[in-house]
Amino acid sequence: MDEKTLRIRNEYIAYVRFEKNYSVHTVTEYERDVDEFLEFLKTEGILTIESITYQEARLFASRLYDRELSRASISRKISSVRSFFRFANARYDINDTAFRLLHHPKKEERLPAFFYAEELDKLFEACLGEKPRDHRDRALLELLYATGIRVSELTSICLGDIDNDLGIVRVMGKGRKERYVPFGSLAQSAIEQYIEISRPLLMKTVKHDRLFVNLRGGPLTERGVRHILDAIVERACIESNVYPHMLRHTFATHLLSAGADMRTVQELLGHSDLSSTQIYTHTTKEHLRRTYMNTHPRA
Protein backbone atom coordinates (compact mmCIF):
# COMPACT_ATOMS: atom_id res chain seq x y z
CA MET A 1 0.00 0.00 0.00
CA ASP A 2 1.32 3.46 -0.88
CA GLU A 3 2.44 5.90 1.82
CA LYS A 4 -0.45 8.31 1.25
CA THR A 5 -3.06 5.61 1.84
CA LEU A 6 -1.31 4.46 5.01
CA ARG A 7 -1.11 8.07 6.22
CA ILE A 8 -4.84 8.55 5.61
CA ARG A 9 -5.55 5.27 7.39
CA ASN A 10 -3.57 6.31 10.48
CA GLU A 11 -5.12 9.78 10.54
CA TYR A 12 -8.58 8.26 10.25
CA ILE A 13 -8.04 5.94 13.23
CA ALA A 14 -6.72 8.89 15.26
CA TYR A 15 -9.80 10.88 14.17
CA VAL A 16 -12.34 8.32 15.41
CA ARG A 17 -10.35 7.78 18.61
CA PHE A 18 -9.64 11.37 19.64
CA GLU A 19 -11.98 13.68 17.73
CA LYS A 20 -15.08 11.47 17.60
CA ASN A 21 -14.30 10.08 21.08
CA TYR A 22 -15.60 6.63 20.19
CA SER A 23 -15.19 3.83 22.73
CA VAL A 24 -12.12 1.59 22.63
CA HIS A 25 -14.30 -1.27 21.38
CA THR A 26 -15.76 0.83 18.52
CA VAL A 27 -12.35 2.17 17.48
CA THR A 28 -10.99 -1.39 17.41
CA GLU A 29 -13.84 -2.47 15.12
CA TYR A 30 -13.29 0.48 12.76
CA GLU A 31 -9.56 -0.23 12.65
CA ARG A 32 -10.09 -3.93 11.96
CA ASP A 33 -12.66 -3.25 9.22
CA VAL A 34 -10.51 -0.67 7.43
CA ASP A 35 -7.41 -2.89 7.63
CA GLU A 36 -9.45 -5.77 6.24
CA PHE A 37 -10.44 -3.59 3.29
CA LEU A 38 -6.85 -2.48 2.69
CA GLU A 39 -5.74 -6.13 2.79
CA PHE A 40 -8.42 -6.89 0.19
CA LEU A 41 -6.98 -4.16 -2.06
CA LYS A 42 -3.53 -5.65 -1.62
CA THR A 43 -4.71 -9.09 -2.78
CA GLU A 44 -6.33 -7.42 -5.80
CA GLY A 45 -3.10 -5.62 -6.69
CA ILE A 46 -4.59 -2.17 -5.96
CA LEU A 47 -1.97 0.05 -4.33
CA THR A 48 -3.92 3.22 -3.62
CA ILE A 49 -7.48 4.09 -2.60
CA GLU A 50 -7.49 6.93 -5.14
CA SER A 51 -8.21 4.42 -7.92
CA ILE A 52 -11.17 2.65 -6.25
CA THR A 53 -14.29 2.30 -8.41
CA TYR A 54 -17.78 1.03 -7.72
CA GLN A 55 -16.76 -2.33 -9.19
CA GLU A 56 -14.07 -2.80 -6.52
CA ALA A 57 -16.53 -1.79 -3.81
CA ARG A 58 -19.02 -4.39 -5.10
CA LEU A 59 -16.29 -7.02 -5.23
CA PHE A 60 -15.33 -6.28 -1.62
CA ALA A 61 -18.95 -6.67 -0.55
CA SER A 62 -19.31 -9.94 -2.47
CA ARG A 63 -16.22 -11.32 -0.71
CA LEU A 64 -17.89 -10.55 2.61
CA TYR A 65 -20.99 -12.45 1.50
CA ASP A 66 -18.81 -15.37 0.35
CA ARG A 67 -17.53 -15.70 3.92
CA GLU A 68 -21.16 -16.18 5.05
CA LEU A 69 -20.95 -13.35 7.57
CA SER A 70 -24.16 -12.12 9.16
CA ARG A 71 -25.91 -9.22 7.46
CA ALA A 72 -25.25 -7.09 10.53
CA SER A 73 -21.48 -7.74 10.28
CA ILE A 74 -21.44 -7.01 6.55
CA SER A 75 -23.41 -3.82 7.06
CA ARG A 76 -21.02 -2.67 9.79
CA LYS A 77 -17.92 -3.33 7.68
CA ILE A 78 -19.39 -1.43 4.72
CA SER A 79 -20.26 1.47 7.07
CA SER A 80 -16.71 1.50 8.44
CA VAL A 81 -15.13 1.67 4.99
CA ARG A 82 -17.69 4.24 3.82
CA SER A 83 -16.82 6.40 6.82
CA PHE A 84 -13.12 5.97 6.01
CA PHE A 85 -13.69 7.20 2.45
CA ARG A 86 -15.84 10.09 3.66
CA PHE A 87 -12.91 11.15 5.86
CA ALA A 88 -10.45 10.74 2.97
CA ASN A 89 -12.71 12.85 0.77
CA ALA A 90 -12.96 15.64 3.35
CA ARG A 91 -9.22 15.74 4.14
CA TYR A 92 -7.59 14.75 0.83
CA ASP A 93 -10.36 15.14 -1.77
CA ILE A 94 -10.35 11.38 -2.45
CA ASN A 95 -13.39 10.33 -4.50
CA ASP A 96 -15.81 8.50 -2.16
CA THR A 97 -18.52 7.77 -4.73
CA ALA A 98 -17.84 4.01 -4.86
CA PHE A 99 -18.94 3.34 -1.29
CA ARG A 100 -21.60 6.04 -1.25
CA LEU A 101 -23.37 4.09 -4.00
CA LEU A 102 -22.95 0.72 -2.29
CA HIS A 103 -26.13 -0.43 -0.55
CA HIS A 104 -26.20 -2.03 2.87
CA PRO A 105 -27.71 -5.50 3.16
CA LYS A 106 -31.18 -5.49 4.66
CA LYS A 107 -30.95 -5.99 8.41
CA GLU A 108 -32.13 -9.23 9.93
CA GLU A 109 -35.27 -8.89 12.03
CA ARG A 110 -33.87 -10.13 15.31
CA LEU A 111 -35.53 -9.27 18.59
CA PRO A 112 -33.17 -8.44 21.46
CA ALA A 113 -32.81 -11.22 24.03
CA PHE A 114 -33.66 -10.42 27.64
CA PHE A 115 -33.89 -12.09 31.04
CA TYR A 116 -37.19 -13.16 32.54
CA ALA A 117 -37.86 -12.31 36.18
CA GLU A 118 -37.08 -15.86 37.32
CA GLU A 119 -33.70 -15.78 35.57
CA LEU A 120 -32.84 -12.41 37.12
CA ASP A 121 -33.67 -13.78 40.57
CA LYS A 122 -31.23 -16.64 39.97
CA LEU A 123 -28.50 -14.21 38.91
CA PHE A 124 -28.89 -12.08 42.02
CA GLU A 125 -29.05 -15.14 44.26
CA ALA A 126 -25.73 -16.28 42.77
CA CYS A 127 -24.11 -13.10 44.19
CA LEU A 128 -25.26 -13.51 47.80
CA GLY A 129 -21.84 -14.41 49.23
CA GLU A 130 -20.04 -12.21 51.74
CA LYS A 131 -16.60 -12.09 50.14
CA PRO A 132 -15.40 -8.75 48.69
CA ARG A 133 -15.75 -10.09 45.15
CA ASP A 134 -19.37 -11.10 45.91
CA HIS A 135 -20.18 -7.56 47.05
CA ARG A 136 -18.54 -6.17 43.90
CA ASP A 137 -20.37 -8.59 41.61
CA ARG A 138 -23.71 -7.84 43.26
CA ALA A 139 -23.18 -4.06 42.97
CA LEU A 140 -22.12 -4.45 39.34
CA LEU A 141 -25.14 -6.60 38.48
CA GLU A 142 -27.57 -4.34 40.33
CA LEU A 143 -26.23 -1.21 38.62
CA LEU A 144 -26.34 -2.73 35.13
CA TYR A 145 -29.95 -3.85 35.54
CA ALA A 146 -31.06 -0.73 37.44
CA THR A 147 -29.74 1.71 34.81
CA GLY A 148 -29.49 -0.17 31.49
CA ILE A 149 -26.06 1.37 30.86
CA ARG A 150 -23.62 -0.16 28.40
CA VAL A 151 -20.67 -2.19 29.69
CA SER A 152 -18.28 0.42 28.25
CA GLU A 153 -20.15 3.09 30.23
CA LEU A 154 -20.03 1.00 33.40
CA THR A 155 -16.26 0.52 33.29
CA SER A 156 -15.67 4.26 32.86
CA ILE A 157 -17.68 5.29 35.94
CA CYS A 158 -15.60 6.96 38.65
CA LEU A 159 -16.44 7.35 42.34
CA GLY A 160 -17.34 11.01 41.79
CA ASP A 161 -19.95 10.01 39.18
CA ILE A 162 -22.06 8.20 41.79
CA ASP A 163 -24.46 10.10 44.06
CA ASN A 164 -25.66 7.25 46.24
CA ASP A 165 -27.80 9.51 48.43
CA LEU A 166 -29.89 10.67 45.46
CA GLY A 167 -29.54 7.38 43.59
CA ILE A 168 -28.12 8.94 40.41
CA VAL A 169 -25.09 8.07 38.29
CA ARG A 170 -23.43 10.31 35.72
CA VAL A 171 -22.73 8.35 32.54
CA MET A 172 -20.51 9.23 29.60
CA GLY A 173 -22.13 7.64 26.58
CA LYS A 174 -21.26 7.29 22.91
CA GLY A 175 -19.70 10.37 21.37
CA ARG A 176 -18.88 11.65 24.88
CA LYS A 177 -22.55 12.50 25.47
CA GLU A 178 -23.22 12.92 29.16
CA ARG A 179 -26.45 11.82 30.83
CA TYR A 180 -27.72 11.19 34.36
CA VAL A 181 -29.49 7.91 35.13
CA PRO A 182 -31.36 7.11 38.35
CA PHE A 183 -31.16 3.78 40.19
CA GLY A 184 -33.24 2.27 42.98
CA SER A 185 -32.80 1.28 46.61
CA LEU A 186 -31.51 -2.24 45.98
CA ALA A 187 -28.71 -0.91 43.77
CA GLN A 188 -28.04 1.85 46.32
CA SER A 189 -27.61 -0.68 49.12
CA ALA A 190 -25.33 -2.94 47.06
CA ILE A 191 -23.16 -0.04 45.87
CA GLU A 192 -22.85 1.44 49.36
CA GLN A 193 -21.74 -1.91 50.82
CA TYR A 194 -19.26 -2.40 47.99
CA ILE A 195 -17.72 1.10 48.21
CA GLU A 196 -17.48 1.24 52.01
CA ILE A 197 -16.40 -2.33 52.74
CA SER A 198 -15.21 -4.34 49.76
CA ARG A 199 -13.65 -1.89 47.33
CA PRO A 200 -10.89 -0.83 49.79
CA LEU A 201 -10.08 -4.51 50.42
CA LEU A 202 -9.82 -5.21 46.68
CA MET A 203 -7.82 -2.04 46.04
CA LYS A 204 -5.10 -2.86 48.62
CA THR A 205 -2.31 -0.38 47.82
CA VAL A 206 -3.51 0.52 44.32
CA LYS A 207 -4.87 4.04 43.86
CA HIS A 208 -7.34 5.26 41.21
CA ASP A 209 -10.92 6.55 41.19
CA ARG A 210 -12.68 4.01 38.97
CA LEU A 211 -15.75 2.59 40.69
CA PHE A 212 -15.33 -1.07 39.75
CA VAL A 213 -12.02 -2.87 40.21
CA ASN A 214 -10.62 -6.31 39.47
CA LEU A 215 -9.20 -8.70 42.06
CA ARG A 216 -5.78 -7.03 41.76
CA GLY A 217 -7.24 -3.61 42.48
CA GLY A 218 -6.90 -2.25 38.94
CA PRO A 219 -9.77 -0.72 36.95
CA LEU A 220 -12.20 -3.34 35.69
CA THR A 221 -12.24 -3.74 31.89
CA GLU A 222 -15.11 -4.65 29.55
CA ARG A 223 -13.61 -8.10 29.18
CA GLY A 224 -13.47 -8.37 32.96
CA VAL A 225 -17.20 -7.58 33.19
CA ARG A 226 -17.96 -10.32 30.68
CA HIS A 227 -15.84 -12.76 32.68
CA ILE A 228 -17.70 -11.83 35.89
CA LEU A 229 -21.11 -12.24 34.26
CA ASP A 230 -20.09 -15.62 32.80
CA ALA A 231 -19.13 -16.78 36.30
CA ILE A 232 -22.44 -15.53 37.77
CA VAL A 233 -24.41 -17.28 35.01
CA GLU A 234 -22.53 -20.51 35.65
CA ARG A 235 -23.27 -20.34 39.39
CA ALA A 236 -26.91 -19.54 38.64
CA CYS A 237 -27.15 -22.62 36.33
CA ILE A 238 -28.67 -20.62 33.47
CA GLU A 239 -28.01 -22.46 30.24
CA SER A 240 -29.13 -19.91 27.64
CA ASN A 241 -26.57 -17.91 25.67
CA VAL A 242 -25.93 -14.91 27.94
CA TYR A 243 -24.00 -11.71 27.23
CA PRO A 244 -23.72 -8.44 29.21
CA HIS A 245 -25.84 -6.40 26.79
CA MET A 246 -28.82 -8.60 27.72
CA LEU A 247 -29.08 -6.66 30.98
CA ARG A 248 -29.53 -3.46 28.95
CA HIS A 249 -32.17 -5.19 26.82
CA THR A 250 -33.85 -6.46 29.99
CA PHE A 251 -33.89 -2.99 31.55
CA ALA A 252 -35.65 -1.47 28.52
CA THR A 253 -38.04 -4.37 28.01
CA HIS A 254 -39.16 -4.46 31.64
CA LEU A 255 -39.70 -0.68 31.76
CA LEU A 256 -41.84 -0.66 28.62
CA SER A 257 -43.75 -3.76 29.74
CA ALA A 258 -44.61 -1.97 33.00
CA GLY A 259 -45.96 1.09 31.14
CA ALA A 260 -42.98 3.46 30.86
CA ASP A 261 -43.21 5.85 27.91
CA MET A 262 -40.78 5.37 25.08
CA ARG A 263 -39.25 8.86 25.22
CA THR A 264 -38.23 8.33 28.83
CA VAL A 265 -36.68 4.95 28.02
CA GLN A 266 -34.89 6.52 25.06
CA GLU A 267 -33.37 9.19 27.33
CA LEU A 268 -32.36 6.65 29.97
CA LEU A 269 -30.66 4.43 27.39
CA GLY A 270 -28.90 7.37 25.75
CA HIS A 271 -30.30 6.61 22.30
CA SER A 272 -29.99 9.54 19.89
CA ASP A 273 -32.68 8.07 17.62
CA LEU A 274 -36.08 6.88 18.84
CA SER A 275 -36.02 4.05 16.29
CA SER A 276 -33.25 2.40 18.32
CA THR A 277 -35.63 2.27 21.29
CA GLN A 278 -38.67 1.12 19.31
CA ILE A 279 -37.22 -2.37 18.83
CA TYR A 280 -38.10 -3.06 22.47
CA THR A 281 -41.80 -2.47 21.79
CA HIS A 282 -41.63 -5.45 19.41
CA THR A 283 -40.04 -7.50 22.17
CA THR A 284 -42.77 -6.65 24.68
CA LYS A 285 -45.50 -7.40 22.10
CA GLU A 286 -43.89 -10.73 21.28
CA HIS A 287 -43.67 -11.54 24.99
CA LEU A 288 -47.37 -10.75 25.42
CA ARG A 289 -48.26 -12.89 22.40
CA ARG A 290 -46.28 -15.88 23.66
CA THR A 291 -47.75 -15.55 27.15
CA TYR A 292 -51.24 -15.45 25.67
CA MET A 293 -50.64 -18.44 23.40
CA ASN A 294 -49.19 -20.47 26.26
CA THR A 295 -51.84 -19.65 28.85
CA HIS A 296 -55.21 -18.88 27.22
CA PRO A 297 -57.47 -21.98 27.19
CA ARG A 298 -58.61 -21.39 23.63
CA ALA A 299 -55.38 -20.09 22.15
Rank of each mutant, 00 (worst) to 15 (best):
H103C: 12
T97I: 13
E142P: 00
L102R: 07
L140W: 00
G129Y: 02
D96R: 08
F99W: 04
R136I: 08
R76T: 01
L111D: 11
T97S: 14
K107Y: 00
R133L: 15
P112Y: 06
F124C: 10
T147V: 07
R136H: 02
R100H: 06
L141K: 03
S83G: 13
R82L: 08
D96A: 12
Y92R: 15
E142K: 08
E119F: 00
R150A: 03
P132C: 11
E130D: 15
S152A: 14
K122V: 07
L101K: 14
E119Q: 09
L123Q: 08
H104P: 00
F99N: 03
A139N: 05
D96Y: 04
R82F: 10
K131Y: 07
L123N: 04
I149K: 09
H135W: 09
A72V: 13
F87D: 02
F87W: 06
R86Y: 12
L128I: 00
G129C: 11
S83I: 00
H104N: 14
Y145W: 05
E119S: 08
E130N: 14
L144Y: 02
D134F: 00
K122Q: 15
L144V: 03
L120H: 10
G148A: 08
F115A: 13
F114A: 05
S83D: 09
K107N: 11
E118G: 10
K131E: 15
N95I: 00
A113S: 15
E109L: 13
K131A: 14
F84L: 03
A117H: 13
R91Q: 14
R76K: 00
E125C: 12
A90P: 03
F87R: 01
